[in-house]
Amino acid sequence: MGLRTKILCGFLILTMMLAVAGVWSVYELTTVGTSVQKLLDDNYKSISAGKMMIEALEREDSAVLLLLSGKWEQGRSIIESGDDLFQKGFAIARDNVTIPGESAYVDTIGARYKAYKDLWIKPIVDTSKEGNLDWYFQEVHKAFLDVKLSVEKLVALNDQTMYQTASDLKNRAHRAIMPGVIAILAALIFTVIFNFLTNYYVVSPIIRTTRGIQHFMETGELPAIQVESEDELFDLVSSIQRLVARVRTAEPSK
C-alpha cells in the first residue's frame, strides 16, 4: 500500500470516528427535543386538564351546598361556571388520549360525571332536598368523590408516564453526549497512534535517508538505510542505493 493511501486512511478513520459520533449526537439531541415537545403535548396537557376538572368539581360541590342552604342564584351561577370549566377540561382530556388505557379512564370520568350531574341538575331549592344533608352526604358527595377519584387516577397515570418519559429523556440526553465523549477520547488515542506510526514508518526513514546521503557526500560511503514498509519510501531508498552504486561505478572512469 502506498504512503498516500496509508496517510489518507488515517485521516479517513479519524474523520469517520468523529463524523459518526457527531451525526448520532445530533440525531439523539433532535429526538430529545421532539420528546420534550411530546411530553408537554401528551402528558402535561392531560394533567392540567385533570386539575381543571378537579377545580370545577370542587366549585360544583360548594355550589350544591349553597343550593341546599336555599341560595339559588349564587349556587346556580357557581355550578354553571363549574360545569363549563369541567366540560372544557374533559374535552381536552378526551381529545388528548395518548397513553394505553387512558381512554378507559376518560370514559369512567364521563360516566361518573353524568351520574353526579344528574343529581344536581334537577331543582334543589324549594324542594324536599333543600336542607337535606343526608341526601347530600349519601348521594351527592359520594358521587362527587367518585368523579374526583377518577380524575385523580387520570392525573396519576399521566404523572407516572411523564416521569417515565423524563427518565427516558435523561437516558437519551446521556446517549446524545456519550458518542461525543467517546469520539473525542478515541480520536485523541488514535492521533497518538497515528503520530507514532507516521513517525516510525515515514518521518524516521526520511531522516535516516537524509543522514545517509549526507554521510555518503562526506565519506563516500552509504550506510545501510532500513525501511520496513514496502511503499514509496522503500522505492526511494532503493533508487538512492542504485544511484550511489552508479556514481561509484562512474567515478573510476573519470
Binding site: K6, C9, M16, M17, V20, A21, P179, A186, I189, F190
Partner: peptide, 21 residues
C-alpha cells in the same frame, strides 16, 4: 448505536496498525 459505534471504533483501531505495520 452504542454497539455499532463500539464495533466501528474497535474495527478502526484494529485495522489501522495492519495498514502500516
Amino acid at each position: 448505536f452504542p454497539l455499532l459505534y463500539t464495533a466501528l471504533i474497535s474495527a478502526l483501531f484494529g485495522v489501522f496498525p495492519l495498514i502500516f505495520v
